[in-house]
Each structure stands twice: as structure tokens, then as C-alpha cells.
Nucleic acid binder design. Sequence first.
DNA 1: ACTATTGTTTACTCACGAGTAGATTGCCTT
DNA 2: AAGGCAATCTACTCGTGAGTAAACAATAGT
Lengths: 205, 205
Amino acid sequence: MPPADSPFQSPQQRSKARAAKREAVLRAAVQMFNERGFHQTSLDDVAASLGISKPTIYHYLGNKDQVLLECVTIGLSQLLEAAEQARQTDGNGAQRLRLFLTRYAQVNMDDFGRCVVRTGAEALGPDSRAQFQALKRKIDSAMRELIEEGVADGSLAPTNTKLLGFALAGALNWPGRWHDPQGELPPARIAEELVTMLAQGFLPR
Amino acid sequence: MPPADSPFQSPQQRSKARAAKREAVLRAAVQMFNERGFHQTSLDDVAASLGISKPTIYHYLGNKDQVLLECVTIGLSQLLEAAEQARQTDGNGAQRLRLFLTRYAQVNMDDFGRCVVRTGAEALGPDSRAQFQALKRKIDSAMRELIEEGVADGSLAPTNTKLLGFALAGALNWPGRWHDPQGELPPARIAEELVTMLAQGFLPR
DNA sequence: ACTATTGTTTACTCACGAGTAGATTGCCTT
DNA sequence: AAGGCAATCTACTCGTGAGTAAACAATAGT
């Protein structure tokens, strides 16, 4: 094995470095997209913020569409992962749903999750858009499954599953629009409280 | 008084016709914005959909920013009007809040309301953006007032007013994203059911 | 009839930003 | 040593779409 501080990189190191650069580009891009909006952000801007030039971005990611698609895909996989976790937890339907929702809300306050919320499908080209929407549908149906399990086991009030899904998604997506990372309440707390409100309803019990 | 079908218009008729054309432009614009997104819609497209040319739009509305600003302003005034109505109704806080929320949801399924939901503040220039955000804040505080009245009179469960406001706004804005006017359930019904869910919570009572 | 005003068009300008060509450098393999 | 590949740059092209200039038409007021 070569010395750890050798200036010559092993193949693994090289490909890791490459992946790290790709991710750095995505991070920089997603932050700018969230701040100024996708259309107000040029790839020149993103490049400049990393001290590189635009063609370098094209070297790692094919085009602007691709950049956005990767950003939202990351966000969406975090949401899917949340669904996966909830699915594997045991407890009744209501408990599992709450677990999912809490994590869901938190993701939406994170860079990539925020990007998912703020990105309209129209911003993407036809192919990317299709992928984007397919993933979103997947999350939707995961949520609906959890709801239906809860209704089935009696831990949730019986309702129109689809509508409840939309209501919950809306309420918990919205933080992606208003949440300020500098705010005093930590995201985890916000998530908890939001979910509790949705669980209890605003009428007194 | 001149004959009703005279080809010569009175001043009132003229200014009314002018206003009608202005509105027609806004309607056409907002529909296209909602469908394809603001940045994917050129004013040439909007003009073409009305069988006119772009400079005509500039004749009625100063620039693209202005067009969007007027669209969202219309939507926002409908929301404000809803708040006004609720404020003037009598009943306890919960009842008034529900009235407001139901109307709020309905507006968000309408052309101009949808535009409000779908438009990120970044799309607007600095001045318009400031106006836009000021109006939104006004709605927010109207909602919070209603919530606080309800908490005060005991018809609502005590909570973090701000968070509850955001949760409700999110849940009821979201239809602006997913609602399909061709759907079987009429907007009024959707609004009712959503509000009921939020009132009751998803846990059984 | 003459002039001003309003509405509308055609035919432009101009900036911006996505995407590319091609050169350059340096490491990695044989 | 030589050729190849990876990473990066500078310096372009080129389409699109916002916004405008200037002309033309119709109507209104005098």
C-alpha cells in the first residue's frame, strides 16, 4: 500500500474525487436554485460560485436540465427512503404514518427536498419531467398505502385516502417554501409540531 | 340616448371595452402561465392565443412583470376578500375560520389563485416582488387573527398560531398544484372535505 | 375637413444564457 | 518516450424572447 499522504491518487481515490466534485456542483446548484429560482440562475453563476468555469459543469453533468433533474432526484430519493423506513418499522398504521410524515417534513426543509417542492414539472424537459413525475407518484402511493393500512387497523379515521394524502403532502411540502434555516426552531421540532397538528386537527378534542 | 346598437361607442362603453380587453389578456396569460409555467410562456404565445400581436399586450400592460403581478394581485385580492367576508360573519372563531379556509381553498383552484400558488416570488422583479410579498403577508396575518380569535373563545385547540397558519395554508394551497378542473369532484366539495380533515385531524375521535 | 388620440401592426434591436469547439495541461499506461 | 485519457479553460455560436420604433388605421372632438 502506498503512503497515505502520497500526492499520487489510486483509482478509487480518483473516482471518489470525481464523485465529490459532481456532488459539489449539485450542492452549489441546488442552493442557488432554491435561493434565486431555477430560471434566474445561470450555470455561469453556479460555476462562478465554485471558482470554476461553465464547461467544467458540462463535463460532470450533461446540461442544465440534467443538473436540475439530479437535484430533485436526490430529494425524492430521500423521501422514498423515509417511506421505506416507515414501512419497515413496526407499530400501528398511525404510528408508522407519523414517522413517515415527520421525516417527510424534515426532508422538505433540506436543500434537495426544498428543490423538489419549489420545482414545477414544467421547468424540466419532457423526458426528465416524466421521470420526475413518476418518482413523485411513487411517493404519493407510498403515503396512500400507509394511510390505508392505518384506516384498516383502525388507528386512523376513515377518509378519502387521496384527499388526505394531498392535504398532508401540501401541509408538509409548504415548509420548503417558507422555512428559514436561520430560524430559531430546529427543523425536527417544526416537523413534529406540524405532524401533531395534522394528527389532532385544529378543533379541540 | 343613442340607439343601443350604434357602432359609435359612448365614453363609458369605450373604457369598459378597454377594461374588458385588459382582462382578456390577463385571463389568457394566467391560463398559459398555469399550464406551461411563467418562463415557458412568451408574450408572443399569449398574444397569439388571442389572435393579436405582442405590442398590443404592451399597450394594455407595461411589461411581462406587470402582467404576472396583475395576475397574482387578482388572486390575492380574492383571498383577502375571503378573509373580509369571514371577518364580517358571526359565529365562533372555529366557524369563521372554516368559512375562510373553505373559500381560500376554492380560490386556489381558480385561475388566478392557482397562479398565486405556482408563482415563486423570484419570478418577479424587485418592486413587484415586494408588493406580492406584502399582500401575502396580509393574508397570513388575517388567517392568524382568525386562529387567535378561535383559540381565545375556546372553539379551537390552543397551538402555535404561526405554525398552524402555515400548515393550513400549505394544505389548502396545494390544490393549486394538483387540482384538475376536469376532475369529477367539484372544487367546492374538495374544499369542504379538505377543511374537515384539517379540522378533525387524521386520528380517530 | 383637420387634428389629436387610441388601438394595432410589422419589423426591428439587443442582451442573455445555453451549449460547443478546440486548445491546454498533466497524469497514467505500456 | 509516446500515445491516450481526464480535467479544465478561453472564446466562441446561436436561438430565443423581451422590449421598442415607427408606421398605419380608425375614431373622436372641433
